[in-house]
Design a protein around this nucleic acid. Structure first.
Length: 297
DNA sequence: TCGCAGGTGGTCG
DNA sequence: CGACCACCTGCG
């Protein structure tokens, strides 16, 4: 018998928006519409039980967590899913800025920014560079299966966490070859060593929490440039004031705010002036809007 | 065959 | 600095 826990009165929460808005790579939609993922060293499955079927995501619903006890949910998944933040208020605040942002908020109304493990976020986004989603996911799964720690079995499948810095730091590029990381493999090994020299991932997390320029700190690591650093700061270090700019954001910022696609600094400035202190949330709504509309928005 | 994908690092002018 | 350009890999 698999443990289950049900949380009532969930709102501003939609599984598809959360797990398909570009912030994570290890959550997979199941045939029954639920999502299974491995994070924080555990396997869990989430599904939403709408109180009114037609209004899924908009009105209150119940969240059912499978393979999870009540204490586990409260200690691990409640913060991971950012359930205690009032996204309704954030959307109202952002929607007042301009019509395009209001549309983006309405479109991705159930988005939440996951509070992911710092080290796993670092590994994931180093792999993401100049890469496509199916391959990113494949690389990450392979890395976990080959070198990660067993995290549990769910519905007949074994799951593994990503390897810790001390594991990756001891590997060679040849040993990582089966994971098909390409030229990112040396980045990963080097970054693992650097993180260990910094005193470990928890120590780095503490530094990032209070850093004036968290992305700058992250860019000291091998294979981490401005975009990957911003993603890590936002998704893995709780720095919601960060506004990652990738190719999709360049498109959306040009289309909606008429900023030159090469004007990286101009986009950062615009985000800071218009969306603070919700830059990270604004980025997620815009990104999801642009992505899902296939660049046609 | 070749371009491309949630970029980065190195090298020029 | 800003503008190139190579880079593992797998897919269309």
């Amino acid at each position: 018998m698999v443990e289950k826990y049900k949380v009532e009165q969930i709102k501003d929460f939609h599984l598809e928006h959360i797990f398909d808005c570009g912030q994570c790579f290890r959550w997979n939609r199941q045939e029954d519409g639920s999502y299974t993922g491995v994070a924080m060293g555990r396997v869990v499955n989430f599904r939403l039980e709408p109180l009114e079927p037609e209004s899924e995501g908009k009105r209150e619903a119940a969240l059912i967590a499978e393979n999870c006890t009540e204490p586990e949910f409260e200690e691990i998944w409640r913060p991971y899913l950012d359930l205690d933040r009032d996204y309704g208020q954030i959307k109202i605040s952002l929607s007042e800025k301009d019509g395009a942002m209001a549309k983006a908020c309405a479109f991705g109304n159930g988005i939440r920014i996951l509070k992911q493990d710092l080290w796993e976020t670092i590994v994931s986004f180093i792999i993401s560079q100049n890469n496509n989603i199916p391959r990113i996911k494949g690389c990450i799964e392979s890395l976990a299966a080959e070198f990660g720690r067993y995290a549990g079995t769910f519905r007949g499948k074994d799951y593994y966490s990503l390897p810790a810095p001390e594991v990756l730091a001891g590997l060679t590029r040849e040993e990582l070859a089966p994971c098909r990381l390409g030229y990112r493999a040396p980045y990963l090994i080097q970054t693992a060593r650097q993180v260990m020299e910094m005193g470990g991932a928890d120590e780095l997390a503490c530094q990032l929490a209070g850093a004036e320029d968290p992305a700058g700190k992250l860019m000291e690591l091998s294979g981490i440039g401005p975009k990957v650093a911003a993603c890590i700061a936002l998704f893995g270090a709780g720095r919601h004031d960060t506004f990652p700019i990738d190719v999709w954001m360049r498109r959306v910022m040009h289309k909606m705010y008429n900023i030159d696609e090469k004007d990286f600094a101009g986009m950062e400035r615009y985000a800071k002036e218009h969306f603070a202190p919700y830059g990270g949330f604004a980025q997620q709504y815009l990104f999801y809007y642009m992505r899902e509309l296939g660049g046609k928005g």
